[in-house]
Simulated assay, not measured.
Amino acid sequence: MIPYGRQDITQDDIDSVINVLTSDFLTQGPVVPLFEQSVAKHVGAKHALAVNSATSALHIACLALGLDKGDWLWTSPVTFVASANCGLYCGANVDFVDIDPCTYNLCPKALEVKLEQAEQEGRLPKVVVAVHLCGQPCEMQPIHDLSQRYGFRIIEDASHAIGGKYQGEYIGNGRYSDITVFSFHPVKIITTAEGGMALTNDEKLARHMDLLRSHGVTRDPALMTREADGPWYYQQVDLGFNYRMTELQGALGLSQLSRLDDYVARRNALAECYDVALAKLPVITPSQHPDSYSGRHLYVIRLKCDEIRLTHRQVFEALREQGIGVNLHYIPVHTQPYYEQLGFCEGDFPEAERYYAEAISLPLYPAMNEGQQEQVVSVLQAILEQV
């Protein structure tokens, strides 16, 4: 089976982890801060906070921005559920903005229309989570312009997008957002096995997230309510969580980071090959906005279902039966049973639902070779040409 994605682990990665295993620190040592500093420097951010998952990063990002009961968080319906759930964790209400039919990201025009209506109704969002689906950045400048007009804060859910660029600058630099979140899950662009990171240029937000990821406990005298009893002393000054990243994970991530640009370049080269090879098939290949350089976490095609004999499901199952480990990213969040109980239903976000009815994620990962890619194309072509 050719998987839709997989990690690339080298001997350098293994040696880095072994070095930590034989050191004095397995957690809360020097490697995680070095990983944080290295990522921040690479993308051009001032602060980076490593955590145990991107979901945790989204959660503490929302809390640091003051999202609370009665507030609204808006995001894209085409994303993993974590992009919306982080709002519910804070007691906030969640709503969605339909996608751009070309990029599949949150549509700035749809956002503007929804904001105009929300302003009249008195329910403007406090936070908008802009999801960089497949690694392609959202149109952040117009979203940021809207934030200045309507007063909401911005989280970039860049779980798919580390190493990508927007307007020639690395995603994560914070030019058009308050906080950016990366994921280091095994199938993502670089991995720490499990893990995530929140980046910001705001020192106050960074301090708050630092507290929240470690029980709300501090040893910093400047944050304490009274003088320390002794060198052992600490205080819990907020209600936090155990969201820390381990030294083992930090070592793996630091090693992987050295190959980040090469990984993204390889993913883009493979995507360009797909674009050419699939050009004459009844599929829509991914559109790239001119302001973006995608991290290319995923290569999603959309079937031209009116031009083929088989259904979407039949094509998907036929590919898997022939050893092509395709997947589908994602089922629109508003159609999930939990969100239906909150009042959402099919028909609420038509572009997202049309996308879901046609999308298939083809295999794409740095270690994929030309023969494997040719096999994917050949099998797909044979399936689509069935009469």
Score class of each variant (00 low, 15 high):
Asp8Lys: 03
Ile9Leu: 11
Ser16Cys: 01
Val17Arg: 03
Asn19Asp: 05
Asp24Trp: 02
Pro33Val: 05
Ser38Val: 00
His42Cys: 02
Val43Phe: 06
His47Tyr: 15
Ser56Gln: 06
Ile60Tyr: 15
Asp71Lys: 15
Trp72Gly: 00
Val81Met: 03
Ala82Ser: 15
Ala82Cys: 09
Tyr89Cys: 12
Val94Ala: 15
Asp98Pro: 00
Thr103Arg: 11
Thr103Glu: 07
Leu106Asn: 09
Leu115Ala: 09
Leu124Glu: 11
Gly135Leu: 04
Gln136Met: 14
Pro137Tyr: 04
Pro137Gln: 04
Pro142Arg: 11
His144Glu: 10
Asp145Met: 12
Gln148Met: 07
Gln148Pro: 02
Tyr150Thr: 06
Arg153Pro: 00
Arg153Trp: 02
Ile154Leu: 12
Ile155Trp: 02
His160Val: 00
Tyr166Gln: 09
Thr180Pro: 09
Val181Pro: 02
Lys188Trp: 07
Ile189Lys: 01
Ile190Tyr: 05
Thr200Tyr: 09
Ala206Gly: 11
His208Gly: 02
Met209Ile: 15
Arg213Asp: 13
Pro221Leu: 13
Arg226Val: 01
Gly230Cys: 11
Pro231Trp: 14
Val237Ala: 11
Asp238Cys: 09
Leu239Ile: 12
Gly240Gln: 11
Gly240His: 09
Asn242Glu: 14
Met245Cys: 13
Ala251Cys: 10
Ala251Asp: 12
Gln256Ile: 03
Leu257Met: 13
Leu257His: 13
Asp261Gly: 01
Arg266Gly: 07
Tyr274His: 09
Ala279Lys: 14
Gly295Trp: 03
His297Trp: 07
Ile308Val: 13
His312Ala: 03
Phe316Thr: 00
Glu317Ser: 05
Glu317Gln: 07
Leu319Val: 02
Gly323Met: 05
Gly323Leu: 05
Gly325Trp: 05
Leu328Cys: 05
Val333Gly: 04
Thr335His: 02
Gln341Tyr: 04
Pro350Met: 13
Glu351Gly: 03
Tyr355Met: 14
Ile360Gly: 12
Ile360Leu: 11
Gln372Ile: 10
Ser378Trp: 07
Ile383Arg: 12
Glu385Ser: 13
Glu385Met: 13
